[in-house]
Design a binder for these strands. Structure first.
Lengths: 259, 259
DNA sequence: AATTGTAACGTGGCTTATCCACCATACAGT
DNA sequence: ACTGTATGGTGGATAAGCCACGTTACAATT
């Protein structure tokens, strides 16, 4: 199938993917305009245009007479503001595991009205419900609960859910995940939650609720993730003059900062 | 003084400012390449390059044969992920006020070591400390505490602090504010905080700590803002394929969502 | 008067060519 | 070993030309 996007936008995407791979790291010199001309068979003007787009996104920095340098690695495919639990835990030298507390097919009429609102469905729809407790070295860190519109992925029960749920959506069902919309709240854990996360009742943790969309506006899933108190924080860097924000939520393992 | 940035980057900035003003709204048709050529005396290639940068930032959308349309208004000058309390409160039809609890000049040796770490100063430095309680219609919503490195704005005591502190930094002292770096935590309010915010002890609220920088890497201020429980939330929209995130923290006045 | 078709114009897309200024490197001369 | 200069590689900017797409205006037909 012929891609109808302009060539420079296709080039943008290819360059972002190249950037996000293992071949380059921050500080490295990236491809030059002329190298891109040769490799992708485009004009210098088109190559420069694509590169300058990545410069304005804050990923690259032009140095005239020297080259193009990597300022920041893009995180293509990163669906949430929260860094992947699995990769973050491994990076901390710990073993990430998941305990599936619940995996069932239910009717929309059986769940909270808020889930149906978020998913824009009526009571007759079927949903999958998946509840998991995420652990690092056996210690509970995150309690997550997810409702997925069953009609978009009918055979989901046949999957083990060991790997990435999103990879299953995209690769097995061909779903085009386009965005997520998260709400972040500070809440007090109730007894059930505190018990599962192995903390005392009454502590404060982050509750992140999110809708995931396919094809721009169609809700596919609704999830809530509750983080262990003192086990999580958000960092946000804002550059007002470049209209740039970068938010990162990450699990904390040794509680370096106490208030 | 001559601006040494490339012409297309200066043009980027001017177009972002034009976009963020009152002249255009989302959905409107923006300037064409050829209009920009005429108005700013640049080549078509340079005009197209600048526009395509704003397209890749998600602000504009090109439609070949039709024109260039506004997809999103930039928020230039917005220093934090949090929407301005003053404008948010007014937008909700309420009256925003501030009670200054403390405004004093102190030695760095007299404050928590963490403030000195964040500000990268030693104990002999002078700081201004400003503590305020922000209210909507008289009801406390935010408790904020700020330390400012005195040497960059020596006469700060002479200002009323009724207006924007950041406007004073930039207009009166000529400081070049370049970024902020925030940490967001979920905390339990202590008795002092709960009392000031008019809630019971033991409730969960957001604690946002931030360093503000001038000239890229020099810390100017360190602040902590504690939000009234149930009186605040963050929303974040993520588009993984375009490497885009949009975070907005906002004060809630009528607690529409309860967990 | 309504409909249809076509030409013209305005829009962004892309290429080629040229020349520029900046920076790093290599080499020659001292 | 140091300095100066030439060269090559880098991004910056412009001009010109042509393309495809979409809209609009106008003429022809019914």
């Amino acid at each position: 199938m012929i891609n109808k996007d302009p060539i420079y936008q296709q080039l943008n995407n290819e360059l972002r993917e190249l950037l996000s791979g293992d071949q380059f790291k921050v500080g490295d010199k990236f491809l030059t305009e002329r190298t891109i001309c040769d490799r992708y068979d485009v004009s210098r003007t088109t190559a420069n245009k694509a590169l300058s787009n990545l410069v304005s996104e804050g990923l690259l920095k032009f140095k005239k007479g020297v080259g193009t340098f990597i300022q920041e690695k893009p995180e293509i495919g990163k669906l949430h503001s929260i860094t992947s639990f699995t990769e973050n835990t491994k990076r901390a030298g710990m073993d990430p595991t998941s305990e599936v507390l619940r995996f069932e097919r239910i009717k929309a009429s059986d769940v909270d009205v808020i889930a149906n609102e978020k998913l824009q469905i009526d009571n007759s729809e079927d949903l999958f419900r998946i509840e998991r407790l995420r652990k690092a070295n056996g210690s509970p860190m995150i309690l997550e609960d997810r409702f997925i519109v069953a009609k978009y992925c009918p055979g989901l029960f046949e999957h083990s859910l060991k790997g990435s749920l999103y990879a299953i959506f995209e690769e097995t069902y061909g779903l085009n995940i386009t965005s997520t919309d998260e709400t972040i709240q500070a809440v007090i854990l109730d007894d059930y939650q505190a018990d599962l996360l192995g903390v005392e009742s009454g502590m404060a943790g982050f509750l992140v609720s999110a809708v995931g969309y396919i094809d721009d506006e169609t809700p596919l899933w609704w999830e809530t993730t509750l983080h262990k108190p003192d086990g999580f924080e958000f960092r946000c860097k804002v550059k007002p003059k470049q209209n740039q924000q970068k938010l990162e939520g990450r699990v904390l393992f040794d509680n370096p900062n106490h208030k």
